[in-house]
Design a protein around this nucleic acid. Structure first.
Length: 220
DNA sequence: GCGACGATGGGCT
DNA sequence: GCCCATCGTCGCA
């Protein structure tokens, strides 16, 4: 991907952190207790974390730049509003696992299950900024961009097989590592998107977190 | 550059 | 049969 270095520089400026820390952070697997907390805390703190995928023996890494929280059966935007079904079962399981589902007849969505086992909640990972294997991700997208919940799963080869994998260990080939912390000044909070038929107040809950000046990524 | 809309298939009633 | 936590393309500017 052309302009990757320039993008890292722009990214570091937008986050007010050093370029060095964007390229090389002291990474470690986020432990289960990280996910076993209120969903919005997890959604916020996943911004800046690194999503790692081993695909065909190649390591792909993206910094998480956009998340949304979906919290409990009360939340009319959350799949768990339908209760415990074969599809939603992963959300009721232990935190730190993946909930991957298929939607709109085309797309796979990646979530990280949160909160204590038995309470259905998850964080939808909507976008990552590629930092390793960017060329491969771009190629998997036929050169098109990788920003969007359906696009990132296609770029990183995430689908049905990754449903319920443990994100706190590397054995499954899909996990999340800590990254450079992103200050509040660099994070925008807004209502979740794509909820056309969801009633209030759920439709307007400010449960979406994204890196400010996200547009700088799209323009490389 | 942007708004409208069709594709497409699993989940659920 | 209807609903979708989306994306790509088309038409128009």
């Amino acid at each position: 991907m052309q302009g990757c270095k320039a993008a890292r520089i722009a990214y570091s400026r937008s986050l007010k952190i050093s370029v060095r820390s964007v390229i090389s952070v002291a990474n470690f697997l986020l432990p289960r207790k990280f996910y076993n907390r209120p969903t919005l805390i997890v959604a916020r703190e996943l911004i800046g974390a690194q999503l790692v995928r081993i695909l065909d023996g190649v390591k792909l890494v993206g910094i998480i730049t956009e998340t949304e929280g979906y919290i409990g059966e009360e939340d009319q935007a959350c799949h768990a509003k339908a209760g415990r079904t074969p599809r939603t079962l992963p959300m009721y399981g232990p935190p730190g696992h993946a909930y991957v589902y298929f939607t709109y007849g085309h797309h796979w969505m990646l979530n990280a299950v949160t909160e204590k086992e038995g309470f259905p909640a998850a964080v939808l990972i909507r976008a990552v900024w590629p930092v390793e294997g960017a060329e491969i991700m771009s190629k998997r997208r036929d050169g098109r961009d990788t920003f969007g919940p359906g696009k990132l799963t296609q770029a990183m080869g995430i689908g049905r097989a990754e449903n319920q994998v443990d994100l706190t260990e590397s054995a499954s080939g899909l996990w999340i590592e800590a990254g450079a912390p992103v200050p509040d000044s660099a994070v925008t909070i807004s209502p979740r998107v794509g909820l056309y038929t969801v009633p209030e107040p759920w439709k307007s809950k400010p449960w979406r977190f994204l890196v400010k000046r996200y547009s700088i990524f799209e323009k490389r």
